[in-house]
């Protein structure tokens, strides 16, 4: 025999509230008083109410079909100064494109917001989010050394792209820099290079929880102590020319025959300084985003990072997981090796 399943209205009746309140309370929406939430949750538990996943899927599907109804919004927050600044960083553009595609697929809208001296500070951002009734936040690749953000996190579902160095403690998505560096180190070793060095901006090291050097140290640990090269960490807010100078000085001093770096202009700076690529120094770029016969290195997929971050924030919203997490889980997206003229092999 079929047993009639417990519906949201049964719970509403038992807890003496409207059924829309039940829905909010079960998702832990802060708009419902904590006492009421608890009462409703207890009633649901007692009656054995479980959300019907078919209806959940339907309610996800419905916003796409009803044009009049407002789509739920995701705020995509960066600390790039403004849109022009964002366009200058190609990885930001790819992250955002991936995020926008996935948001559209899942039926969400997306607003790009900047925390910077010229745009939002924490207070104005908070009031913007409230005014527009936005609950979902993506903290997208916050750069160390620029503006940060303080919000009442309990009111939001938050996921980060990189940004490991700043609060809140929430999950996130990144490129798998550890595996990217290991792959490049292994491939360059197989190509016959013997003095391999990693050069990375300190800002990127910190925002990725040191995963570049993690991959680097474990590969270098397999070498004889005399063949190991200390990594070059570019200081914060270092202008390109200064980075180029540091890079060439380090490469000469350490007698490096192959540079691993995510910094795209590295090749140009080496060339300018007389360290021709690949004749004098080989180069493996750790941030390739499209096939290029000139460049060896690792192809990364920032678009997939953007898509995943939106899926994760949508999961948080569905399951009512707001605020900080005691055990934030971070997801890393793989990269693929690509041979190229900048590392022909010894």
């Amino acid at each position: 025999m079929l047993r009639a399943s417990v519906t949201i209205k049964d719970v509403a009746h038992a807890a003496r509230v409207h059924y829309s309140t039940v829905s909010l309370a079960l998702r832990d929406a802060p708009v419902v008083a904590a006492e009421t939430r608890q009462r409703v949750q207890e009633a649901a538990e007692r009656l054995g109410y479980a959300p019907n996943s078919v209806f959940s899927a339907l309610s996800r599907y419905r916003p796409q079909r009803e044009v009049a109804r407002r789509r739920p919004q995701i705020a995509y927050v960066t600390n790039c100064a403004d849109q022009a600044d964002m366009r200058r960083h190609p990885h930001h553009r790819h992250y955002l494109e991936g995020a926008l595609r996935q948001a559209t697929r899942l039926g969400y809208g997306m607003k790009v917001l900047h925390v910077s001296e010229t745009e939002h500070d924490s207070e104005s951002l908070a009031s913007y989010l409230k005014r527009h009734d936005i609950e979902c936040l993506v903290l997208a690749a916050f750069e160390p050394g620029f503006s940060t953000l303080a919000l009442d996190w309990d009111a939001f579902c938050v996921v980060k792209i990189d940004s490991r160095h700043i609060p809140p403690s929430v999950g996130g998505v990144s490129i798998d820099q550890l595996e990217v560096v290991r792959t490049a180190h292994r491939e360059m070793t197989a190509l016959g290079y013997r003095r391999i060095g990693l050069a990375v901006r300190r800002a990127e090291e910190e925002s990725t929880d040191h995963r570049f050097t993690m991959g680097y140290f474990i590969e270098q640990a397999a070498l004889a102590p005399g063949s190991r090269v200390p990594p070059l960490l570019f200081p914060h807010n270092c202008p390109d020319d200064e980075m180029g100078r540091l890079l060439c000085r380090w490469a000469r001093k350490q007698k490096i025959d192959a540079v691993l770096t995510p910094w795209a202009p590295a090749g140009e700076h080496l060339r300018r300084d007389g360290l021709r690529v690949p004749d004098v120094v080989a180069l493996a770029l750790l941030s390739l985003t499209k096939p290029d016969p000139e460049l060896a290195g690792v192809r990364i997929s920032p678009g997939v990072v953007g898509a995943k971050v939106v899926s994760h924030v949508a999961t948080l919203l569905r399951t009512g997981q707001r605020g900080i997490s005691a055990f934030p889980t971070h997801t890393y997206v793989a990269g693929l090796w690509q041979n190229g003229a900048s590392a022909p092999g010894r």
């Binding site: 996943s53 899927a57 996800r60 996935q102 697929r105 899942l106 998505v173 798998d176 997929s301 997939v304 995943k308 899926s311 994760h312 949508a314 999961t315 055990f327 934030p328 889980t329 971070h330 997801t331 890393y332 997206v333 793989a334 990269g335 693929l336």
Partner: peptide, 21 residues
């Protein structure tokens, strides 16, 4: 469940690893 909702079937374009602390 997120994959089911997004109808993302089959092998991912590039795989990912999620770490639980």
């Amino acid at each position: 469940i997120a994959l089911l909702h997004a109808h993302e079937r089959g092998l991912p374009e590039v795989p990912s690893v999620t770490f639980v602390p």
